[in-house]
């Protein structure tokens, strides 16, 4: 839980609108910006990790078995991983309610 409320009354704001908790950007669940998300075809994946390197959100990690996995709480659906993947094994798939 964030220490600072994301929508405080003005009386409760930190002095000068400072952010007093380091790393608090993690409370921004940017995953809900997404309209489509990456889906890996692991049969084609060569475990190179380029998708994780290029992910601007830093939400792709390499699993113990060497394959990548995205934290969909934060994936914005930018598709940079799709563009960068050497093996062309990632597809953007539209997400519907």
């Amino acid at each position: 839980m964030p220490k600072q409320s994301p929508s405080p009354n003005w009386q409760d704001m930190a002095l000068g609108t400072a952010i007093t908790e380091p790393g608090s950007a993690k409370y921004q669940r940017t995953g809900d910006w997404r309209s489509s998300g990456p889906v890996w075809d692991l049969d084609k994946c060569i475990k190179c990790g380029v998708c994780a390197v290029f992910c601007p959100e830093g939400c792709i990690t390499m699993r113990a078995d060497g394959y990548p996995e995205a934290d969909m709480e934060y994936c914005k659906g930018c598709a940079i991983c799709v563009c960068e993947c050497w093996a062309a094994c990632i597809a953007m798939v539209e997400e519907k309610e």
């Binding site: 994301p6 929508s7 405080p8 009354n9 003005w10 704001m13 000068g16 609108t17 400072a18 952010i19 007093t20 380091p22």
Partner: peptide, 15 residues
């Protein structure tokens, strides 16, 4: 601490 962050519409009025 972060001084001078973005103030989204949700906090600008209060600021």
């Amino acid at each position: 601490i972060t001084m001078g962050p973005v103030g989204m519409p949700v906090v600008y009025t209060e600021a």
